[in-house]
Design a protein around this nucleic acid. Structure first.
Lengths: 158, 158
DNA sequence: GTTATATTGTTGCTCTTGCAACTACCAGGA
DNA sequence: TCCTGGTAGTTGCAAGAGCAACAATATAAC
């Protein structure tokens, strides 16, 4: 697993607890800020929409099963249903029946969805740089990417 | 500011972008898991309550102005008003008039609030270890604490 | 002292989310 | 084949959070 601590401790040591607290509140503060910045321009989509559209744009055929999408953006299935409702109503994606599974539904990115993605990216990127990336040196960036990626993958498992 | 990048870039480099994406989804996955674990036991308080109670327990006199508390837990003032309503209704804190400012209100931790904190900590600590701390070696823990602390402090400023 | 400006906390409203229950569908076993 | 268990997606419901607007109080300018 990981060196430097016994893996069956019941409490985090002070350094890891400080990391956890910084993690939680940094997330709230930074995401809140970026969200408000995006909300200031009616042409830009909110972060939750952006996450869904990005996941679709990176998927083969720009389409994904709803259950897959829910795992991808870390949302409950019911939450994802409503989110996809809103995106579909806005024309940024469309639902399509899954050919090989009668239960399934695919979300498919539309040209309007791609356009929304491209339109939102510059402001989003500025927010990431100004409130997050700007404060990291190269070593820290690598460590965060590796460590948080590992944590995310573990927490996403069933 | 920080070495290793020019500070006026409009987009994050790939490493920092990967760090950002891991940061966002790791938070959603880990906090969601811990929240569900706590919700499984009716004697434990949810994370938002825990954050408020901790902030109070660490403040001098175990009391804090509501505006200070809102900054501390990164919540809007209206959001904090309702949250404090719920905590007060549950008897975990009480409101008190601020002696030196007629506009102000203090939130004061009650014994029941301290008890809730102590009761919730073990399960919360287990969640932090199992889903977060367990995946960090000592170096990573130090880097996360420092870097995310810096990011949090910057994003909390007005 | 009076007036103008800013801050504190609360409320109305709306949006978003999760859980539990439900339907529709798939897969495996008798 | 039929039946049983499991999965996919949707819905009713309730809880939580933010914005804008408001009343009360404080602070500064004059």
């Amino acid at each position: 697993m990981v060196r430097g601590m016994s893996t069956d401790r019941l409490e985090p040591d002070p350094t890891r607890l400080a990391a956890w607290e910084a993690f939680v509140f940094a997330h709230a503060a930074v995401v809140g800020r970026i969200e408000r910045e995006l909300a200031g321009d009616p042409d830009l989509v909110p972060l939750a929409w952006y996450d869904v559209l990005t996941a679709l744009s990176e998927a083969p055929g720009e389409r994904l099963r709803l259950s897959e999408l829910a795992r991808e953006v870390v949302l409950s299935r019911s939450g994802l249903t409503r989110l996809v409702d809103r995106l579909e109503a806005a024309g940024l994606l469309r639902r399509e029946a899954c050919p090989d599974d009668g239960r399934g539904t695919l979300a498919v990115l539309t040209p309007a969805g791609e356009a929304a993605l491209r339109r939102t990216w510059p402001a989003y990127a500025r927010g990431i740089v100004a409130h997050f990336a700007r404060h990291l040196d190269d070593d820290e960036a690598r460590v965060l990417s590796a460590a948080l990626g590992r944590i995310r993958d573990a927490a996403r498992e069933p």
